[in-house]
Design a protein around this nucleic acid. Structure first.
Lengths: 173, 173
DNA sequence: TCCAGAAACTTTAGGCTTAAAATATATTCC
DNA sequence: GGAATATATTTTAAGCCTAAAGTTTCTGGA
């Protein structure tokens, strides 16, 4: 057993001199760069979805959640998977049902719950859009080699776990 | 000089058999993971900003753009830097001016342009919020070591350049 | 000078998004 | 069984966001 002090999150003399606020510019720059990256990609895909298929990204994303689930999914589960609020899902589903791309039915077992699934038209439309979407994403990342993609996957996986840990147990402020 | 064919973006026999649609699942998974990461972090920061300072993230982001620019900035430049539409900036600025955190004045040289800058109250409020914000981000990434942070920075930089290239010159669809 | 086009900004219409309150149904515990 | 609690969803109010159209001002030729 080692008797070394645990140094994680401890304040060095410099940060104590600054009033207990340590310098974390590297993490901040990382976050800003990640946000820029995501914003650029999201904007580009949204623009293309709109120009090519006259659909919004949130609607496409919702359809993607439903694609491999023939039996459908409840609104609550959609909300959790998409990481958006319940009310948001209600509105998106309503609009997609109006467009004939989704169908909803009340659960027999639990009358509070509503199952949602793609209609045939929805499946057909999604297949076409998803194929192009995949090509767009591939082209957006085309300058990265397989090794870089793997590294990014691994590092973003680590980042995700760190974020989950921090969200469960936030720093006291 | 080598005479090898350039293989980037070419279709192999398998993808030709699939109708010219090559398989790019790795890129797609990378994009989804990046989006998940960003969404989680953004949600967490938004929640904390709201709970702790009763401010929205877009307003904080706008203030951050103005912090180190004592002479202020035009709405158009804010729009470009924040990567949001002009109309969006107009609304955000209006609300921040109403709150007394921002001031706007018409340019003398170009009467179309409006310069926006933080008020003293805005500077003071931002300083407090930015310090905590930095700590939150540091904690969100606390499980990553310096090497991992550097690698992520580098790889996201490469990704960003790839996205810029693809946005300028999109795949024909 | 004048005017056509560009640029900076605002407005508008519509959709996305959240948090919080409301409604309806299930479950648990006594 | 019945009350309290929890869960699934919808509704509401407010704000964010975009694309497109509109207004005002500037700029560069003819």
């Amino acid at each position: 057993m080692s008797a070394e002090p645990v140094e994680t999150h401890s304040l060095d003399s410099e940060s104590r001199a600054r009033g207990g606020h340590a310098d974390h510019k590297a993490e901040l720059r990382l976050w800003l760069r990640m946000l820029t990256c995501t914003t650029m990609i999201e904007g580009e895909i949204r623009r293309r979805m709109r120009d090519r298929f006259v659909i919004t990204l949130p609607r496409f994303d919702l359809m993607a959640q439903l694609e491999r689930t023939p039996d459908g999914m409840t609104l609550g589960e959609l909300s959790r998977r998409m990481m958006v609020s319940n009310g948001n899902v209600t509105g998106l589903v309503d609009r997609l049902v109006t467009e004939g791309l989704l169908q909803r039915r009340q659960s027999d077992a639990d009358r509070r719950a509503h199952y949602v699934s793609l209609t045939e038209a929805g499946h057909a439309a999604f297949a076409v859009m998803a194929a192009e979407h995949e090509d767009w994403v591939a082209d957006l990342f085309a300058d990265l080699g397989p090794v870089e993609i793997d590294s990014l996957m691994r590092l973003l996986g680590a980042a995700k776990r760190s974020v989950q840990r921090s969200s469960r147990n936030p720093v006291p402020s």
